[in-house]
Simulated assay, not measured.
Amino acid sequence: MQIRSCSILTSLSLVASLLKHAHAADGPGRLSRLVTFGDSYTDIVSVGDGGTAWPVYAVGYANATLFPFAKSGAVCSQDLTPRPFPGVVQDELPAYLAQSQTGSIAVPSNETLYTLWIGTNDLGPTTLLLGQAIVNNATIVDVMECAVNWVKTLYDSGARNFLFQNLVPLDHVILYQANSYPNRFWTDIRNTTEWNLFMSELVAGGNAISRLLLRALASTLPGAHVGLFDSHALFTDILNNPAEYLNGTAPFNTTGCVNSCIFPLGNGSAAPVCTVAKGSDRDSFVWFDELHPSEQADRVVAREIANILEGIGSKWATWFS
């Protein structure tokens, strides 16, 4: 595989870095309802962290009501990066709109926060990373435009408070580490250094693009609060300062995972060798498995989102309107 040019993405990243320090608007204040969209990072049924999903913790901390629409395996749109899983555009948004329009869920616009955490599967090995399943030469730009358009779709339906959760540093999850091993998500031979570098560029470019698009969109939506939750910065801080976030009984671990399974190279059907942390040792890890955050890391996310729901705000959130 040939690594694609990243000069445009690098330029966007520099611009976004400058814009980040511009004056930000205030958040929406106290909210009592949370509506979530996304993939296994947010799904409360097929939970990616091996425990309780962050939205459940968040509404518990904030004494709010949860309306979950995130589905494990999801991408933003099947028209860009098709996978045999739901899409935000094709499945999650229609499900929400159907329920809200029939009145089966109560989501008053001045009391409800809408969140989206998507992109991990869109950037994965079966999609943008290797270009195996993309439609019409879809790029990271198309995926981020799709994700940001989620705001406009919901705004047109009456929603007013939006929090866009950007991509975590995926180059640090085990699947994309330079010294990665054959695991449950990929057992074939690969150039792990190339994967690590390219994923770093995809994430940096995707996050820069989404920030610019969100800022531009926010100015066109009267009465809306549009915010960016910087998941990348938060997880980078967790990785750099684990003692401030992790509270398990084992030594802090930022490179391994709670549930690690090493497969024989090139043979995904063979029995793996697994190492699983138990009990409170689990809370010493940033990652649950080779792709997902740990439950303790998700509690950190939940606390920050709960603070936003309570009107306290979060240092990881920037409001463009």
Rank of each mutant, 00 (worst) to 15 (best):
Y155A: 12
D156T: 01
S157I: 01
G158L: 00
G158K: 00
G158A: 04
R160G: 11
N161G: 11
F162Y: 14
F162E: 01
L163A: 10
Q165R: 10
Q165D: 06
L167S: 09
V168D: 01
V168W: 11
L170R: 05
L170C: 08
D171C: 07
D171H: 14
H172Q: 13
H172F: 15
H172P: 09
V173F: 15
V173K: 03
V173M: 09
I174D: 05
I174L: 11
Y176Q: 03
Y176M: 05
Y176E: 04
Q177S: 13
A178V: 07
A178L: 06
A178S: 14
A178P: 10
N179D: 14
S180H: 10
S180C: 07
P182C: 02
P182A: 02
R184Q: 08
F185N: 02
F185W: 15
W186V: 07
W186C: 10
T187N: 07
D188G: 03
I189L: 13
I189H: 14
I189E: 10
T192I: 00
T193P: 01
T193R: 06
E194K: 04
N196M: 06
L197N: 14
L197R: 10
F198V: 12
F198R: 03
M199E: 06
M199A: 10
M199H: 12
S200A: 13
E201Q: 09
E201C: 13
E201T: 03
L202Y: 01
L202D: 00
G205N: 01
G206D: 01
G206H: 06
G206I: 00
G206S: 10
G206V: 00
N207V: 07
I209P: 01
I209M: 02
I209Y: 02
I209C: 05
I209E: 04
I209N: 01
S210W: 09
R211P: 07
R211I: 02
R211M: 07
L212W: 06
L212C: 08
L212M: 11
L213D: 11
L213H: 13
L214V: 04
L214E: 02
R215F: 15
A216S: 11
A218Y: 08
